[in-house]
């Protein structure tokens, strides 16, 4: 059942709304385990939209197995999604930098605050992101180092390619998951794909993981989906490969996975001079899990990330 949990009037004949799809077989919400799935904080990340659809479809197919409450927030940055813009369109602010929001702040700060208030008390919260349009990401769980110990057992339920403990922007202070963890709701981020597209294979795996988490919290009585142990890493165990030169990045890797030290990941070419200005070579054996998607690069642009060493299993 879709509820409007927050609404504000835009200037010309429209309201901005924060919608929640609540799926439950019980009226006793307060005493039930509750999972919150949030998507659409960034308007160019579409992966979560498919996940909302697929999760709902699979629950409805076996509705009698649902023993708790699943709350889905499909479009938090509604205007960003509608315009395929990463940020809040008018202010050009990253919405994942304004949590926990404010009851008397700007319109989107109020949306952020309303979301936090609505999720408060949940058993667990998963914030589903896609990547932006610049890099392609393999399926990963991101957790803030500050809360990593308490989140690890939930993160490991996701059939991801890696679990990354880091203070990167998607899990740092002023993000949704940080704010939720601060008020006692275990929360982590799932990230995959590339901006403005949907990868249904990743989407299906994320939904599998969501069912695993639901089962862990007694929200779902179906079977768990088994998967291999997921490597866990932090920033110290990742090679970050960035552009030293401006130009066009030509990707040599057509899939994620193991790479050998010395293997060519791609090259940067200067179209004007018709020459290769930088070859991107893997400095170590490892697992490629991020690669540049948008060809044009300036010095500093992220080209690839390679997991070179696991912190723990």
């Amino acid at each position: 059942m879709y509820d409007t949990i927050f609404s504000m009037e835009l200037p010309v004949g429209e309201h901005i709304k924060l919608l929640r799809n609540r799926i439950s077989n019980t009226e006793d919400i307060k005493n039930s385990s509750r999972m919150s799935i949030v998507t659409g904080i960034h308007g160019d990340e579409m992966e979560g939209q498919y996940i909302c659809y697929e999760l709902t479809r699979r629950i409805e197919n076996e509705r009698d197995k649902l023993k708790g409450v699943v709350d889905i927030y499909p479009a938090v940055n509604l205007l960003g999604l509608d315009n395929a813009i990463h940020t809040i369109p008018k202010e050009r602010l990253d919405m994942n930098h304004i949590f926990p929001g404010s009851p008397d702040g700007s319109m989107m700060e109020r949306v952020a605050y309303a979301l936090i208030e609505d999720i408060a008390g949940a058993s667990v919260c998963i914030d589903v992101h896609g990547s932006d349009i610049f890099t392609r990401e393999s399926l990963q769980v991101r957790i803030n180092e500050e809360f990593a110990a308490g989140l690890m057992e939930y993160a490991k339920l996701m059939p991801a390619n890696l679990i990354w403990k880091n203070p990167c922007p998607s899990v740092a202070a002023s993000t949704l998951v940080h704010s939720m963890n601060c008020i006692g709701v275990p929360a982590f981020t799932v990230e995959c794909g590339v901006g403005n597209t949907i990868n249904t294979k990743y989407g299906d795996r994320i939904v599998d993981g969501i069912f695993n988490v639901m089962k862990y919290f007694g929200i779902w009585e179906g079977e768990a989906v088994h998967h291999d142990d997921t490597p866990v890493c932090d920033d110290s165990s990742i090679d970050f490969m960035r552009a030293d030169k401006a130009g066009l990045f030509i990707n040599s890797m057509n899939k994620f996975g193991r790479v050998k030290k010395g293997q060519c990941i791609g090259k940067i070419i200067d179209v004007n001079k018709n020459e290769v200005v930088q070859e991107i070579i893997a400095p170590n054996d490892g697992i490629l899990f991020t690669v540049r998607e948008f060809p044009m690069v300036y010095e500093g642009a992220l080209l690839a990330r390679i997991l070179v060493q696991e912190v723990e299993k």
């Binding site: 504000m8 009037e9 200037p11 010309v12 901005i16 700007s106 319109m107 109020r110």
Partner: peptide
Amino acid sequence: PLVNESDV
């Protein structure tokens, strides 16, 4: 010139 509800 255009304001949302709740704009400062």
